[in-house]
Design a protein around this nucleic acid. Structure first.
Lengths: 118, 118
DNA sequence: TCCATATTTCAATGATCCTTGAATTATTGA
DNA sequence: TCAATAATTCAAGGATCATTGAAATATGGA
C-alpha cells in the first residue's frame, strides 16, 4: 500500500455509510454480502449504496463478484491490513509510543509472538 | 477513540498536504514544528497551511501551543495510536487475518512481546 | 509607540462529494 | 419472449472542501 492508495482508503473510510459497510463486510467474512442485503441492513437506498460500494471498491478495501442475479461484496483483508501497516510504519514512522498500544491489540487477536514473527 | 472521532480522523488524513503534515510532525517529535516551518517544508502558503492545521487540530491528531510569536504544532501520539487501535479492533473486529501483518510491524518497533502486554 | 514577524481569519471561487429518483442493464424463471 | 428481481448508471441538486489573496490579530523588539 503506497501513499496514494492510503489517501484514497482514508477518504473511503471517512464517510459514515462506507465505514458501516466495511465493518459489516469484515464481520460477514469470506462469504461476503449481496448489495441488496447491505442496503437493507444499512438502511440506505439501492442507488446510494451502489455509489458507496463503487467508492469502496475504487479504494481497494472491498471486492465484488457476481453470483447469479446478485453482486457479492467482500472485505479485502489484505488491503485493510496494508492500511493499518501504512498507518503504523509509513505515517507514524514505526514510533513505539504510537505503535505499542496497537501492538497490545494485535497481540490479543494475532496468534504469533514477537519472536515467531521475526 | 469512538467512531465519530475516527470518521473525522480518516477525513483529516485523506488529504495529501495534511498527511504530509502529520508525517513531518511525527518525525519531528515532542518538540514539534512552528506553523511557518511546516508551511515552508510542505511548500504551501501560510493561509493554506493554517486551514489544514486547523482541520488536523479539530480531528485531534495534532495539538498546538503558542511559543512567543510562533505557534508550535505537535503530533498527538495518543490519538494516532487510538486511530490504529480503532482500525484494528473496532473496524476490523480484531480479525487475525487483518491484524497479524500489523502485529509483525508492531513487534518490530514496540519493545514488548505478547506475554509482557497481557 | 511603531514596526516587523508569525499566524489566523475572511470572503470568494472552483472543485469534489453526497443524495435522490428515474432510467438502464443483467440475470433468471415461467 | 415476457415479467420479475438485483443492481448500476445518469443527471440534477445541494452540501462540503480546498485554494487564493487581502485584511486582521498577536507578539516582541527598537
Amino acid at each position: 500500500m503506497d501513499q496514494r492508495q492510503a489517501l484514497v482508503a482514508f477518504g473511503a473510510l471517512s464517510q459514515e455509510t462506507r465505514l458501516h459497510i466495511v465493518r459489516m463486510l469484515v464481520v460477514s467474512g469470506p462469504n461476503g454480502m449481496a448489495a441488496g442485503a447491505i442496503a437493507e441492513k444499512a438502511e440506505v437506498s439501492p442507488s446510494n449504496i451502489s455509489f458507496h460500494l463503487k467508492e469502496l471498491e475504487r479504494s481497494g478495501l472491498i471486492t465484488q463478484q457476481r453470483e447469479s442475479r446478485s453482486i457479492i461484496y467482500t472485505a479485502n483483508y489484505e488491503a485493510l491490513g496494508g492500511l493499518i501497516r501504512f498507518l503504523m510504519e509509513d505515517c507514524c514512522s514505526g514510533n513505539p509510543q504510537i505503535c505499542a498500544p496497537a501492538a497490545a491489540v494485535a497481540a490479543c487477536c494475532a496468534p504469533a509472538t514477537k519472536e515467531e514473527l521475526q
